[in-house]
C-alpha cells in the first residue's frame, strides 16, 4: 500500500506545472494523510500489545523472571534495555542525519562555504548515507534482539507476549526497511545526476516518512521497553 502511494507520487513529480488549490504539492498532502493513517495502524498494534501485557500464561516475560514449572528452568526477564537504548539512540541520530540531508539539498544552490565542516554539512550524499547507515544499524540491533530472544526461548508462537511483541516491532522494522530502500533510491538519483534544490520535495517526503517511523519508535521504546 505504502509503496504504491509512494510510487505514484514519485512519478507524478514531473508534472509540477499543475497548479493546486492550496499551493501544496500533491505528494506531500498524500504523505501526510498516509502518516495520519499509519497512526491508527500503530495504535492498533500497540493497544494489542498493552492489552495482552501480563496475560501470557507461560514465559518468558518482558520484565520478570519466569520458572518453567515442568522443567524448573529459569527464564530471565527478556527485554534488553541497554541494547535497545543504544538502538533507540541510533534511530534518533538517523533523524538528525535525515534533516541535515534535507537541508543540504535545499541549500545546494547557495555558494559553497570555505570551512571544512561547513562544506561537509552541504553534502547530501554524506547525510543520506549516514541516515541509511544508522537505519541499517538499527535494523542490525533488531536482528540481534530477535535472534537472541529466539535463543532464550521466545518465538512469535511462544505466548501472547511473543506474538504481540514480534508483530509490533516487526511491523516497525519493516517500515524502517522500506525507509532504507527509499533512501538508497534517493542516493541512486544523487549519484546519477545530483540532487538539486528542485528535488528538495522528494527528499522532504522521504524525510517525513523517516521521522514518522522514528517517532513511532519513541512511543514503542517508552510503552513497551521502559514501562513495566
Amino acid at each position: 500500500m505504502a509503496t504504491a502511494a509512494i510510487a505514484e507520487s514519485h512519478s507524478h513529480g514531473e508534472v509540477s506545472h499543475h497548479r493546486t488549490s492550496t499551493g501544496l504539492n500533491h505528494r506531500k498532502v498524500a504523505v501526510w494523510a498516509f502518516i495520519g493513517s499509519e497512526c491508527m495502524l500503530f495504535v492498533s498494534l500497540i493497544s494489542t500489545y498493552l492489552i495482552y501485557k501480563g496475560r501470557s500464561v507461560v514465559g518468558p516475560y518482558p520484565h520478570e523472571n519466569w520458572t518453567d514449572p515442568a522443567t524448573g528452568k529459569v527464564f530471565k526477564e527478556i527485554l534488553n534495555i541497554p541494547v535497545t537504548s543504544a538502538s533507540t539512540f541510533v534511530l534518533l541520530m538517523s533523524s538528525l542525519a535525515m534533516v541535515l540531508a534535507l537541508a543540504a539539498v535545499q541549500n545546494k544552490d547557495k555558494p559553497m562555504p570555505t570551512g571544512w565542516w561547513d562544506r561537509q554539512l552541504r553534502s547530501s550524499k554524506l547525510w543520506l548515507w549516514m541516515t541509511a547507515l544508522l537505519g541499517t544499524t538499527f535494523l542490525g540491533f533488531q536482528a540481534y534482539e530477535f535472534t537472541s530472544f529466539v535463543h532464550e526461548g521466545l518465538t512469535i508462537r511462544t505466548n501472547l507476549f511473543g506474538s504481540s511483541f514480534f508483530t509490533l516491532t516487526g511491523f516497525h522494522g519493516a517500515h524502517v526497511t522500506v525507509g532504507v530502500l527509499w533512501l538508497l533510491a534517493l542516493l541512486g538519483i544523487d549519484y546519477k545526476r545530483g540532487l538539486k534544490p528542485a528535488d528538495a520535495l522528494n527528499v522532504d517526503i522521504a524525510a517525513l516518512y523517516w521521522h514518522f517511523v522514528d517517532v513511532v519508535w519513541i512511543a514503542i521504546f517508552t510503552l513497551i521497553y521502559l514501562i513495566k
Binding site: I51, Y52, R55, V57, I156, R157, N159, L160, G162, S163
Partner: peptide
C-alpha cells in the same frame, strides 16, 4: 492471518487471549 498461518496466539484463549 498470523494465527491461522504462522501459529501465533492472538486469539487463542487457552494462551490467555481475550
Amino acid at each position: 492471518l498470523f494465527d491461522r498461518f504462522f501459529g501465533t496466539n492472538f486469539y487463542t484463549v487457552a494462551a490467555g487471549a481475550d
